[in-house]
Protein backbone atom coordinates (compact mmCIF):
# COMPACT_ATOMS: atom_id res chain seq x y z
CA UNK A 1 0.00 0.00 0.00
CA UNK A 2 1.06 3.58 -0.61
CA UNK A 3 3.01 5.32 2.13
CA UNK A 4 1.30 8.54 3.19
CA UNK A 5 4.07 9.66 5.48
CA UNK A 6 7.66 8.63 5.04
CA UNK A 7 10.13 9.94 7.59
CA UNK A 8 13.71 9.03 6.77
CA UNK A 9 16.28 9.04 9.58
CA UNK A 10 15.33 12.36 11.07
CA UNK A 11 17.47 13.94 13.80
CA UNK A 12 16.87 17.12 15.75
CA UNK A 13 19.43 19.03 17.77
CA UNK A 14 18.70 21.91 20.13
CA UNK A 15 22.07 23.49 20.71
CA UNK A 16 24.06 20.60 22.14
CA UNK A 17 21.02 18.56 23.02
CA UNK A 18 20.08 15.73 20.69
CA UNK A 19 16.32 15.40 21.03
CA UNK A 20 15.84 13.01 18.13
CA UNK A 21 18.36 10.79 16.54
CA UNK A 22 17.92 8.81 13.37
CA UNK A 23 14.19 8.24 13.60
CA UNK A 24 12.43 6.62 10.62
CA UNK A 25 8.69 6.17 10.56
CA UNK A 26 6.31 5.18 7.79
CA UNK A 27 2.55 5.47 7.81
CA UNK A 28 0.57 3.83 5.03
CA UNK A 29 -2.85 4.72 3.74
CA UNK A 30 -5.67 4.06 6.16
CA UNK A 31 -3.38 2.83 8.93
CA UNK A 32 -3.55 3.65 12.61
CA UNK A 33 -0.01 3.86 13.92
CA UNK A 34 1.06 4.74 17.45
CA UNK A 35 4.27 6.13 18.87
CA UNK A 36 4.83 5.30 22.51
CA UNK A 37 7.66 5.95 24.88
CA UNK A 38 8.38 7.46 28.28
CA UNK A 39 8.06 11.18 28.93
CA UNK A 40 10.82 13.14 27.29
CA UNK A 41 11.51 10.48 24.69
CA UNK A 42 11.08 13.05 21.93
CA UNK A 43 7.62 12.10 20.69
CA UNK A 44 6.21 15.60 20.54
CA UNK A 45 9.47 16.88 19.06
CA UNK A 46 8.99 14.27 16.37
CA UNK A 47 5.49 15.60 15.67
CA UNK A 48 6.83 19.11 15.47
CA UNK A 49 9.42 18.01 12.93
CA UNK A 50 6.83 16.23 10.85
CA UNK A 51 4.48 19.22 10.82
CA UNK A 52 7.35 21.60 10.06
CA UNK A 53 7.02 23.62 13.25
CA UNK A 54 10.66 22.65 13.62
CA UNK A 55 12.95 21.96 10.69
CA UNK A 56 14.80 18.71 11.34
CA UNK A 57 18.58 19.04 11.66
CA UNK A 58 19.13 15.92 9.56
CA UNK A 59 17.00 13.56 7.57
CA UNK A 60 13.95 14.01 5.40
CA UNK A 61 10.19 14.02 5.72
CA UNK A 62 8.04 13.04 2.74
CA UNK A 63 4.29 13.32 2.57
CA UNK A 64 2.03 12.12 -0.23
CA UNK A 65 -1.05 14.29 -0.74
CA UNK A 66 -4.24 12.72 -2.03
CA UNK A 67 -3.80 11.84 -5.69
CA UNK A 68 -0.27 13.24 -5.79
CA UNK A 69 3.34 12.28 -5.63
CA UNK A 70 5.50 12.47 -2.47
CA UNK A 71 6.47 16.01 -1.41
CA UNK A 72 9.53 16.84 0.66
CA UNK A 73 8.39 18.82 3.72
CA UNK A 74 11.73 19.99 5.12
CA UNK A 75 11.70 23.76 5.51
CA UNK A 76 8.08 24.23 4.48
CA UNK A 77 5.85 26.47 6.54
CA UNK A 78 3.47 24.66 8.91
CA UNK A 79 0.46 26.14 7.14
CA UNK A 80 1.66 24.80 3.78
CA UNK A 81 1.98 21.36 5.32
CA UNK A 82 -1.58 21.59 6.56
CA UNK A 83 -2.72 22.67 3.13
CA UNK A 84 -1.15 19.53 1.67
CA UNK A 85 -3.36 17.43 3.88
CA UNK A 86 -1.75 16.82 7.25
CA UNK A 87 -3.52 17.97 10.40
CA UNK A 88 -2.69 17.66 14.06
CA UNK A 89 -3.93 18.16 17.58
CA UNK A 90 -1.85 19.36 20.49
CA UNK A 91 -0.87 17.72 23.72
CA UNK A 92 -1.66 20.84 25.71
CA UNK A 93 -4.98 21.74 24.12
CA UNK A 94 -4.55 24.79 21.91
CA UNK A 95 -8.06 25.85 21.00
CA UNK A 96 -9.04 29.36 20.04
CA UNK A 97 -10.55 29.82 23.46
CA UNK A 98 -12.40 33.05 22.91
CA UNK A 99 -14.07 31.97 19.73
CA UNK A 100 -17.19 29.86 19.55
CA UNK A 101 -17.04 26.14 19.04
CA UNK A 102 -18.38 26.51 15.54
CA UNK A 103 -15.92 29.28 14.72
CA UNK A 104 -13.03 27.11 15.84
CA UNK A 105 -13.96 24.63 13.17
CA UNK A 106 -14.71 27.37 10.66
CA UNK A 107 -11.20 28.77 11.05
CA UNK A 108 -9.83 25.43 9.99
CA UNK A 109 -11.67 25.70 6.68
CA UNK A 110 -9.31 28.57 5.88
CA UNK A 111 -6.98 26.69 3.59
CA UNK A 112 -9.87 25.11 1.69
CA UNK A 113 -11.61 28.41 0.95
CA UNK A 114 -10.46 31.60 -0.68
CA UNK A 115 -12.46 34.74 0.14
CA UNK A 116 -10.03 37.64 0.61
CA UNK A 117 -10.31 41.15 2.00
CA UNK A 118 -12.36 42.49 -0.85
CA UNK A 119 -14.55 39.44 -0.81
CA UNK A 120 -15.20 40.11 2.86
CA UNK A 121 -16.05 43.76 2.29
CA UNK A 122 -18.22 43.54 -0.81
CA UNK A 123 -19.62 40.08 -0.16
CA UNK A 124 -20.34 39.03 -3.72
CA UNK A 125 -22.55 36.05 -4.32
CA UNK A 126 -19.80 33.46 -4.42
CA UNK A 127 -18.45 34.62 -1.06
CA UNK A 128 -21.86 34.34 0.55
CA UNK A 129 -22.19 30.85 -0.85
CA UNK A 130 -18.74 29.96 0.38
CA UNK A 131 -19.58 31.23 3.85
CA UNK A 132 -22.79 29.22 3.94
CA UNK A 133 -20.84 26.17 2.84
CA UNK A 134 -18.28 26.72 5.61
CA UNK A 135 -21.00 26.94 8.22
CA UNK A 136 -22.76 23.86 6.84
CA UNK A 137 -19.68 21.69 6.71
CA UNK A 138 -18.36 22.85 10.05
CA UNK A 139 -21.65 22.11 11.73
CA UNK A 140 -21.76 18.69 10.08
CA UNK A 141 -18.37 17.93 11.58
CA UNK A 142 -19.50 19.04 15.02
CA UNK A 143 -22.46 16.72 14.63
CA UNK A 144 -20.24 13.85 13.65
CA UNK A 145 -18.27 14.33 16.84
CA UNK A 146 -21.30 15.00 19.00
CA UNK A 147 -20.34 18.57 19.79
CA UNK A 148 -23.27 20.25 18.04
CA UNK A 149 -25.30 21.11 21.16
CA UNK A 150 -22.55 23.55 22.14
CA UNK A 151 -21.86 25.04 18.75
CA UNK A 152 -22.47 28.63 19.81
CA UNK A 153 -20.62 28.40 23.12
CA UNK A 154 -17.11 29.71 23.63
CA UNK A 155 -14.56 26.96 23.22
CA UNK A 156 -13.12 27.82 26.63
CA UNK A 157 -16.43 26.91 28.28
CA UNK A 158 -16.45 23.33 27.00
CA UNK A 159 -15.70 20.53 29.43
CA UNK A 160 -12.18 19.14 29.13
CA UNK A 161 -13.01 15.97 27.24
CA UNK A 162 -15.10 17.91 24.73
CA UNK A 163 -12.23 20.31 24.19
CA UNK A 164 -10.10 17.38 23.08
CA UNK A 165 -12.86 16.34 20.71
CA UNK A 166 -13.12 19.86 19.36
CA UNK A 167 -9.41 19.78 18.58
CA UNK A 168 -10.03 16.67 16.51
CA UNK A 169 -13.03 18.25 14.78
CA UNK A 170 -10.93 21.29 13.98
CA UNK A 171 -8.16 19.16 12.53
CA UNK A 172 -10.64 17.21 10.43
CA UNK A 173 -12.02 20.42 8.97
CA UNK A 174 -8.76 20.98 7.12
CA UNK A 175 -9.58 17.82 5.12
CA UNK A 176 -6.45 15.94 6.05
CA UNK A 177 -5.19 12.69 4.64
CA UNK A 178 -3.08 12.08 7.71
CA UNK A 179 -4.15 13.05 11.20
CA UNK A 180 -1.60 13.38 13.98
CA UNK A 181 -3.01 13.06 17.49
CA UNK A 182 -0.76 14.12 20.35
CA UNK A 183 -1.90 12.27 23.47
CA UNK A 184 -5.62 12.48 22.69
CA UNK A 185 -6.60 10.55 25.82
CA UNK A 186 -4.50 12.54 28.28
CA UNK A 187 -6.56 13.48 31.31
CA UNK A 188 -9.58 11.43 30.31
CA UNK A 189 -11.35 8.89 32.46
CA UNK A 190 -11.75 5.25 31.29
CA UNK A 191 -15.22 5.82 29.83
CA UNK A 192 -14.07 8.83 27.88
CA UNK A 193 -11.02 6.93 26.69
CA UNK A 194 -13.16 4.07 25.44
CA UNK A 195 -15.42 6.50 23.60
CA UNK A 196 -12.36 8.17 22.11
CA UNK A 197 -11.08 4.82 20.87
CA UNK A 198 -14.33 4.21 19.00
CA UNK A 199 -14.18 7.72 17.67
CA UNK A 200 -10.68 7.32 16.26
CA UNK A 201 -11.64 4.16 14.41
CA UNK A 202 -14.84 5.77 13.20
CA UNK A 203 -13.21 8.89 11.79
CA UNK A 204 -10.57 6.76 10.13
CA UNK A 205 -13.26 4.80 8.31
CA UNK A 206 -15.58 7.72 7.66
CA UNK A 207 -12.96 10.17 6.35
CA UNK A 208 -10.52 7.65 4.91
CA UNK A 209 -7.60 8.85 6.99
CA UNK A 210 -4.32 7.54 8.14
CA UNK A 211 -3.79 8.29 11.82
CA UNK A 212 -0.53 8.63 13.72
CA UNK A 213 -0.92 9.04 17.44
CA UNK A 214 1.20 9.54 20.52
CA UNK A 215 -0.31 7.95 23.56
CA UNK A 216 0.51 6.91 27.09
CA UNK A 217 -2.58 4.82 27.70
CA UNK A 218 -1.31 1.32 26.93
CA UNK A 219 -4.63 -0.42 26.70
CA UNK A 220 -5.80 2.11 24.16
CA UNK A 221 -2.65 1.88 22.09
CA UNK A 222 -2.57 -1.91 22.10
CA UNK A 223 -6.14 -2.40 21.02
CA UNK A 224 -6.30 0.48 18.59
CA UNK A 225 -3.15 0.57 16.57
CA UNK A 226 -2.06 -1.67 13.79
CA UNK A 227 1.61 -0.90 14.25
CA UNK A 228 3.57 0.67 17.07
CA UNK A 229 6.86 2.53 17.24
CA UNK A 230 8.61 2.73 20.58
CA UNK A 231 10.91 5.63 21.40
CA UNK A 232 13.34 6.21 24.20
CA UNK A 233 15.85 9.03 24.60
CA UNK A 234 15.17 10.28 21.10
CA UNK A 235 15.81 6.93 19.41
CA UNK A 236 13.51 4.27 18.05
CA UNK A 237 14.06 1.10 20.06
CA UNK A 238 11.35 -1.14 18.62
CA UNK A 239 8.73 -1.33 15.94
CA UNK A 240 6.02 -3.81 15.01
CA UNK A 241 2.51 -5.06 15.71
CA UNK A 242 1.17 -4.69 19.24
CA UNK A 243 1.94 -8.37 19.95
CA UNK A 244 5.53 -8.04 18.77
CA UNK A 245 6.14 -4.88 20.69
CA UNK A 246 4.58 -6.29 23.84
CA UNK A 247 7.09 -9.14 23.82
CA UNK A 248 10.14 -7.08 22.94
CA UNK A 249 12.60 -7.21 25.87
CA UNK A 250 13.92 -3.70 25.28
CA UNK A 251 10.42 -2.30 25.43
CA UNK A 252 9.68 -4.17 28.62
CA UNK A 253 12.87 -2.79 30.11
CA UNK A 254 12.14 0.78 29.06
CA UNK A 255 8.58 0.53 30.28
CA UNK A 256 9.15 -1.39 33.47
CA UNK A 257 7.86 1.46 35.56
CA UNK A 258 4.88 2.18 33.38
CA UNK A 259 3.71 -1.30 32.36
CA UNK A 260 2.27 -1.93 35.80
CA UNK A 261 -0.51 0.56 35.60
CA UNK A 262 -1.16 0.03 31.94
Amino acid sequence: MEAVLDVRSVSMNFGGLRALSDVSVTVREGEIVAIIGPNGAGKTTFFNCVTSIYTPSEGEVYFTPRGGTPVRLNGMKPNAVTALGMARTFQNIRLFRNMSVLENVMVARHCRTRAGIFGAIFRPRWVRQEEAEIVRRSYALLRALGLHPWYNELAANLPYGQQRRLEIARALATEPRLLLLDEPAAGMNPQETAALKDLVVRIRDQFGLAILLIEHDMSMVMSLSERIYVMEYGCLIAEGTPQEVRRDPRVIKAYLGEVDHA
Binding site: N79, A87, F90, F96, M106, H110, G116, G119, A120
Partner: peptide
Protein backbone atom coordinates in the same frame (compact mmCIF):
# COMPACT_ATOMS: atom_id res chain seq x y z
CA UNK B 1 -18.02 42.57 7.75
CA UNK B 2 -14.33 41.82 8.05
CA UNK B 3 -14.71 40.47 11.54
CA UNK B 4 -17.18 37.81 10.47
CA UNK B 5 -15.35 36.71 7.36
CA UNK B 6 -12.71 34.18 6.51
CA UNK B 7 -10.03 36.85 6.94
CA UNK B 8 -11.49 38.05 10.21
CA UNK B 9 -11.60 34.57 11.65
CA UNK B 10 -7.97 34.08 10.67
CA UNK B 11 -7.09 37.30 12.52
CA UNK B 12 -8.90 36.14 15.63
CA UNK B 13 -7.23 32.75 15.46
CA UNK B 14 -3.90 34.55 15.28
CA UNK B 15 -4.81 36.42 18.45
CA UNK B 16 -5.81 33.27 20.26
CA UNK B 17 -2.90 30.99 19.43
CA UNK B 18 -0.23 31.52 16.79
CA UNK B 19 0.97 27.95 16.66
CA UNK B 20 -2.48 26.43 16.39
CA UNK B 21 -3.38 29.09 13.86
CA UNK B 22 -0.57 27.94 11.60
CA UNK B 23 -1.45 24.33 12.16
CA UNK B 24 -4.90 25.12 10.81
CA UNK B 25 -3.36 26.13 7.52
CA UNK B 26 -3.31 29.89 8.04
CA UNK B 27 -0.31 31.80 6.75
CA UNK B 28 0.84 33.72 9.80
Amino acid sequence: RLKDSRVGRALQALREDEVACQAMGIDR
